[in-house]
Design a protein around this nucleic acid. Sequence first.
RNA 1: GGCCCCGUCGUCUAGCGGUUAGGAUCCAUGGUUUUCAUCCAUGUUACAGGAGUUCAAUUCUCCUCGGGGUCACCA
Length: 411
Amino acid sequence: MLMLRFACSPTGDMHIDDLRVALLNYIISKQKNEDLIVRIDDMNKEKNIEGKDQEILAILELFHIKYSQVVYQSQNIRFYSAMALDLLHKKKAFACFCSHEWLENKKNEAKAAKKPYKYDDACRNLPAELVIDNTAPFTVRIAKPEQATTSDPMDSFVIMRQDKTPTYNFACAIDDMLSDISIIIRKDEQKNDTAKELHVRNSLGYDKEIEYAYLPALLDTPSVKELLEDGYLPEAISNYLISTINEPLKEIFTLQKAIEWFDLGKISKTPTHFDIDILKHINKEHLKNLEAKELSRYVGFADEEIGELARIYLNEANTTKELKAKIAPIFSQRVIPGMFAQQATLMAQTIKDAPYFEAYIDFKNHIMKETGLEGESFLKPLQILLTNAEHGPDVAKVYKYLKNYIQEIVK
RNA sequence: GGCCCCGUCGUCUAGCGGUUAGGAUCCAUGGUUUUCAUCCAUGUUACAGGAGUUCAAUUCUCCUCGGGGUCACCA
């Protein structure tokens, strides 16, 4: 049985590099047809922000990332204590009475001497009577591995703080053990945590092999919320994020398609910069693929005609926000530049009195004839009257979707 | 400073010993469009540097340089 997990802490807005990790975990879980669980790392009481967990889950929902359950670290506290006690019994962990200041001094000394700081195991072999008589607060440290397995030997690190809450590496190692996780896909920057977590599990006698995969950094990333507010489609964001880790078959694709071809073995190794230009391009393509009704909803209407109208404007907009800014003026008060004021007034009156025309050509001929305007002095005022902008799409195209609203607009 | 990861057009990338080093985006130019844009066409720009291995190195090895990450009683 395989199991994957996505861990996220509710201490701030979710950034798109977090989302990318979630997406990747989801894709692999689907490919392997296994469960994905979401873990909320809520052990930092001071930094936790009320409601952020729900926000994270809402984002996952919006991006169609499905999971089988949500676990909160804070609910596992009794396990962490039990495991720490077990390690203590087995002499694989020990109480450390070193004060914060003292350790701080040691670190500064090491820094001054340009040597890496390692805890010196001062409290490791304290006689039992010294421990029992000591009323000072203490942390629990896990005994470092017997032999150094890497060129950067680990020291006996803290697993339980003075307030007897677990540290991250300890909690994380135990969570993955309890949830029976088999594949961990996380950010590259967490690579250094892996050895510690492995050591915790080994010390506890857990020997299941966990497969690890690391995602190189995505630099300068905005929060998911920001992108959504700026009018980027979830499917476009997914498309972009996935193409930063695997070369896609086709530039534009859906999450479903990505599940078919994605290859965990071909994860890109180079750290990448978040590139808004490419996302814009992808977003536009996804916008083009939307049904008229759906498109219409994104710009604040629920009308197929408006959707088609919006589609015309897609040529000059990359996001739903930009699209909205193009469509909204059409249905608001006209701003007519002085040089066209006269013609526009005349034309507006003529349109008001005119019958309904199905075809633009008939409409155009009628207005031309009635107003006597032609060329530039016909087209510009008409364009402004219809679209409330001096530049924009072909009025003939726009008329097709605007003809039913024309009296309302001219008013 | 120790350790880890990574260096191909400005950006995202393809390449897995022999290629005119390909694509996307951006930018520029031209064409279409009675406007802006779209669209189409064309174009500029890249193997970080140095040694080695080899008939042959963007590709393999080492060094240098550069970028990022990490070294907590944060997650």
